[in-house]
Write a protein that binds this DNA or RNA. Sequence first.
DNA 1: ATGGTTGGTTTAAACAATCAACCAATTATA
DNA 2: TATAATTGGTTGATTGTTTAAACCAACCAT
Lengths: 388, 388
Amino acid sequence: MPANQFSSQINGNRLLRELWINRGLSRIQLAQRLELDKSTVSLLVNPLAKAGILETISEGSASSRGGRKPLALGIRGEYTCFLGLEIQPDGIYLTLLDLRGRVKETRRIPEDLAGPGSAARLGERLLSLYWEYEARYPLMAMGAGLSGIVDTREGRIIKAMLLDIKEGCTAQELVPGGLPCPLIIENDANCCTWGELMLNREGEKENILFLLLESDYFQGRSEYRGRFSLGMGLSLGGRVHRGRQFGAGEFRSILWGGEAKSQFSLSHGDLSRLGENPAIREKLFREIGRNMAFLNNALDLDRICVGGNIEKYGEEFRSILAAELASGRSYHSREECPITLSSLGEYAVSFGAAAMLLMELFNTDQSQDRKNALQGREALENFKHKQG
Amino acid sequence: MPANQFSSQINGNRLLRELWINRGLSRIQLAQRLELDKSTVSLLVNPLAKAGILETISEGSASSRGGRKPLALGIRGEYTCFLGLEIQPDGIYLTLLDLRGRVKETRRIPEDLAGPGSAARLGERLLSLYWEYEARYPLMAMGAGLSGIVDTREGRIIKAMLLDIKEGCTAQELVPGGLPCPLIIENDANCCTWGELMLNREGEKENILFLLLESDYFQGRSEYRGRFSLGMGLSLGGRVHRGRQFGAGEFRSILWGGEAKSQFSLSHGDLSRLGENPAIREKLFREIGRNMAFLNNALDLDRICVGGNIEKYGEEFRSILAAELASGRSYHSREECPITLSSLGEYAVSFGAAAMLLMELFNTDQSQDRKNALQGREALENFKHKQG
DNA sequence: ATGGTTGGTTTAAACAATCAACCAATTATA
DNA sequence: TATAATTGGTTGATTGTTTAAACCAACCAT
């Protein structure tokens, strides 16, 4: 394979990314934005259109001074889909996205994934889900989010928080014969961050903090065991930050009281009364807010997103968090860091797991060690060849 | 200018970076590491060698099975130099680096840069320093670190902490007629982070926290006004993190007491007794350590570096910090995050300011908005043309 | 001397991107 | 209604970058 390595791949991915952000651009507009010659854009677009990855949406209207109508281009959602999963002890949450990022389906699959033998059950379920969705959609890849520390690059579970999966287990090992498509695993809070990166189609390199609150106390169901946990996901400079050993996002309050499994100054006993006792709730939320004010000062975030199953207490949490951010902020004038509540509810993680696959497609960063990742234009075209 | 945009530039920079990390590689070894054909490497290397940017260090020894001796290549330090400055209210610290990253000179220049009219004095000084060093070395660029919030991209001072420089001032505006070479400005703690990135020639994308402690109390000199301040510099994924509005690295303790200009729970009165009172010192160091344990959990750092003028208290600080990191660490087993004391002493910032220029030369990341930055191979060759 | 081995150069070919010229389609105007 | 002006998109010649293959250069062992 002679000739250039990067250029074509990079420009192909840049083009896809640009069309992802701005659906409906014409070849000429793409050329301007990507700083390429219009003929170069044509040479990139036409094979992609022929392969079914891009489509002509509509004819635009000509300029008032005459001229041919521009042809609005867009990514063709039907080309392929991505299956995103969240693996919980009591079941799997599922979100199916198409290539345009549209949600085709969400679903919750109850299953006991906590007890002994759960790893085998999970493997079987992953395989059956693949075939079930493969029959209905062209399925390019699967992503799974779970609570724990995950080596996304190698696809290895370093530490699983709640599931009975042996540590050091790789994603492909979960499924005995292997899956017929790539399976990327990721920490659950990081998945949510991927989701937020996808939902913001500005194309800016955002600095996002995602706060994933998981609680049984709010919901009243404590089937396996009670817990309240806070996981953090970080996007820094538009890239999900995983840290040295994929351990980034671990939260333990600075005001931590010393109780072994708690993350906060509050005891387990206190936490168990969260639902009924507003004072305890406020103390907890204020403590989290105080820690996040510190983090916001240190990282200068674009925004903070809140998700997980905090249900009706979301707004309460948000207002306390905002107050703490304001009072803890360093003295220099800085724009307020906006706080948003995730609209995805309990599907935030599974949505993000699929979003991660999509976003990595458009990644133009070659310099990294992401040989395992799906590589934009190339991956898409290879997929077609595999299918056809 | 027809034809490819990226490839040559990227591969040229990758080659320079590889030789930066591993001085003495031969063309063949470079080809293997960069995954390029050996002929491609020759075509890249030979013009660089002819221009004086690379040199043949030595003939290696041939393999035991025969064959020609490899020619060890290296970056030629004499080709050009970089001037790094730290701008303080009472003077300028200076470090001169050559293209190999060797320190050619360090120097402190006393000057009153705090009072009214200091901006003009600074401008004159920058210009005179340029001509002074330009006469002795081929000077490619200057970098300046200062306490405050700096828009490195636009070269604009958003907030100067101590200097009498009007905010919104650009680097080039400081010097009335403009400087004959690029002047890049950066936050002081970020400079230190650049320095650490340069000193570690592993080429890994490190996650570093640099703690820049600045104090007059330890030194006993309080010429303009007493202060103890902590600035943070972050490298995340090998890139200096600046945040949304270049405000990253601001420190305010979670245990902050409410006093306006303090960063800590301790009052100004307490802080003024740091030098004499070990108990206050321990309380301060422990408080910093506690905050950093939180940050380390959140970011999963590779290492923490400590610098600035804490003088003889460095080891004391380090041990307390280590203890707090250990006790605050989340429960899962994680390798200890090593803490190192900067060996550069009071020249850490100026060293880093020059290091930043060097490191940006080797940057292969095209996707960013760093049109202002010096661009590796191209910048080096243009420099020669300007000189010759 | 000879053959085998390794480092580095030369040359032709492949490919990606550009520029310039062209076609296609539309508006304004004579 | 013909015509010019304008804009969107395609085609063909040209150029820069990389590769593969053949070559030269230098070294070892026998």
